[in-house]
């Protein structure tokens, strides 16, 4: 029994090295003092971190990414919270179909979504690129908002909502005073997961770039095509720190079980 577990443990260790090793390597190379990416790095320097801010497009696209993710998140919340609420609160005919429709943006290939949105949002509907970008990101955040909030509503005792109504609170006041405070952590987790999803998105943003408009991941892709210096490694390091912090908050708020149940 022990023997087998040691074998299994060793195997798992190797798989984890495969998963995390590249991320550690790229973190290490970000401190390279030279101009060529190297592992192990030939010394220690923070110059590539400074370089991030010298290449104007990085701070600029970072700002775009943040604004799009936050605005899109807000929009997705406005659309998604009522839908998630309706889908968990009531049972009605066609509910499964509606659920499938709301979750479908995850299923449709991102690159297809991006292309069809370019084709119709920008070209046919004549929306400005920035608006198209925002809408595209809202679409891909919606399923995450609905799924995470839906799962936190699934353990919600709707009798407390009726209790508030019977005590004289109207439907809206009931929602804000009683339902919302009790699913607060689910909502924050949903916002964070959707934020990461949008912030890291390539497939939609790829098609929604225009003069002065691009997101950080797209700018990173473009940069990598032209330069192979450690700047991207430095940005990666910063992004991973951001990811780790957000993931820690998500774990505190609702555990990681959301990821393992589908």
């Amino acid at each position: 029994m022990r023997n087998k577990h040691i074998g299994l443990g060793l195997f798992s260790l190797l798989v984890y090295i495969f998963l995390l090793g590249p991320l550690l390597i790229i973190s290490a190379t970000s401190f390279e003092p030279g101009t060529v990416l190297k592992f192990p790095p030939s010394g220690f320097s923070l110059q590539w971190y400074q370089n991030i801010f010298k290449v104007e497009l990085f701070p600029q696209t970072f700002k775009t990414s943040i604004v799009i993710s936050l605005l899109g998140n807000l929009l997705a919340l406005l659309l998604g919270v009522p839908a998630a609420y309706a889908l968990s609160r009531f049972s009605f005919r066609g509910k499964d179909t509606l659920n499938a429709i709301f979750l479908s943006p995850v299923l449709i290939p991102g690159i297809v979504l991006g292309f069809t949105m370019l084709k119709y949002l920008i070209v046919v509907y004549h929306l400005p690129i920035y608006t198209g970008l925002l809408i595209g990101h809202t679409v891909i955040m919606l399923p995450f908002i609905i799924r995470v909030i839906g799962s936190s509503l699934s353990s919600f005792d709707f009798a407390i909502e009726e209790a508030a109504l019977s005590l004289g609170a109207g439907p809206l006041r009931t929602f804000f005073k009683v339902v919302l405070p009790n699913i607060r952590s689910g909502i924050i987790a949903a916002v964070l997961i959707a934020f990461l999803e949008s912030f890291n998105n390539v497939d939609i943003s790829l098609f929604m770039t225009g003069p002065g408009i691009s997101t950080l991941p797209i700018q990173m892709l473009t940069y990598v095509e032209n330069y192979f210096d450690p700047t991207i490694a430095a940005i990666s390091m910063l992004l991973m720190i951001l990811t780790a912090v957000l993931m820690f908050v998500i774990e505190r708020l609702m555990g990681l079980s959301y990821f393992t149940k589908r």
Binding site: I26, N200, M220, V224, S236, L239, M247
Partner: peptide, 16 residues
């Protein structure tokens, strides 16, 4: 953690 990390970062690391 890797799942939530940017795919650009992850693919880039393999270029290195």
């Amino acid at each position: 953690f890797p799942l939530l990390t940017s795919p650009v970062v992850r693919s880039f690391s393999w270029m290195v």
